[in-house]
Design a protein around this nucleic acid. Sequence first.
DNA 1: CTCGGGCTTGACCGAATGGTCAAATAACTG
DNA 2: CAGTTATTTGACCATTCGGTCAAGCCCGAG
Lengths: 220, 220
Amino acid sequence: MKPKLSKPRPKQDTAQRIRAAADELFCGRGFAAVSVQDIAHQARVQKALVFYHFGSKEALFEQILEGYYQAHRDALATAYAGAGTVRERLHRMIDAYLTFMADHARYAALIQQQVGSPETHPLIERNLAPLFTWIEQALAELTPASGPLAPRHFFLTFSGTVINYFTYAPLLAPLWGSDPTAAAALDERRRHVHWLVDTVLDALTAARPPRPRSGQSSRG
Amino acid sequence: MKPKLSKPRPKQDTAQRIRAAADELFCGRGFAAVSVQDIAHQARVQKALVFYHFGSKEALFEQILEGYYQAHRDALATAYAGAGTVRERLHRMIDAYLTFMADHARYAALIQQQVGSPETHPLIERNLAPLFTWIEQALAELTPASGPLAPRHFFLTFSGTVINYFTYAPLLAPLWGSDPTAAAALDERRRHVHWLVDTVLDALTAARPPRPRSGQSSRG
DNA sequence: CTCGGGCTTGACCGAATGGTCAAATAACTG
DNA sequence: CAGTTATTTGACCATTCGGTCAAGCCCGAG
């Protein structure tokens, strides 16, 4: 009648409390501006416990970052994997992206802060690469393979359109007089991005034959 | 025959050396991750000189940030101020934005890093507000006043499209196998953004009468 | 020359940093 | 119960942090 396995760990939540505290602080202030003391205090835990459970401040940070990236990647992979036309799948991916960002509001700030620091580049690259590959594949049949309308550009354009909204949300709140992350505002943004995707895809398909049949592009 | 005024300051470049060193380091690693020692070492200068010339680490940082913002704002203001149609002025503004970012490659990382820290919000807001106002004015006659196609959304979309390219450039280099900030790549990006602006404006003007005359939108 | 003030230096400060450790405690196993 | 292991504690470490200070340097002015 043991409801738990051989490792019940009644106080296992300690690590989780530390993780949660670190998550919030890192996202709000960035890696360097947060001390282990801060994290321990926020988690109402002894500082040494942070090192006991995670080894070092860097390891804790990378664990949090990795978790975020994995959740993000999985969310987009699920959205992309389903059936439907390329356009439908792209819309689903945009939706998933927006939803994920809305659910993890501070994630945007975190990655934007960390993109600049060379030591975390391998970690980011490892998680960014599949995203990049998906978009390239999805757009391959709609856009030229190279040049200003190549998939890579739309990848950056769409991802920037989504992420920039959340990056600047805290700054825009006072300018707008309302919270950009509120449900209504988010839905409006969602419709904007969908409109943009449709407009772009319409323009792309109008410019070239609807189905070139031969996937090879001769480069304009 | 004095070539200089009452303040020749043969070693005036010290402050400039410190500024340059701080600029590079702050942009590369962010405020918190850079120590005054680092700055002094990079500038080949005694640490105390940093405090003599700038008072504090924060003051030095804000001076650099302010300088960047002012140059950025001025560049966009000049581009926007000229004659021409709204479309032409928008294209000029995009061009100025891209050029400024290319000339100050690390600026993108800096502001993205700082957007998240509440203490610099007033500084950023002060410099972001006019930008926001310009775009809203410029787009007012082309887009609905509210809803998913309101000017504010296009402001975020276009600025994200520009800035995101530079934010992710260091990460994309290994993925692409070439430097996204090289002249050829930048020109391609420039054409992409111009294509996007034209496509969006075409769609907006096609959807509604070319000149609604009455600026009031009934919101869909 | 002397004077005086803007630079520059290097030593110094208290506080905070990331990290360690031995000892104490809690929890589970036999 | 004893024995073992996982967890927790608080003191402790060396280093670095942002910042100060008094003394010296270098300069042009008188």
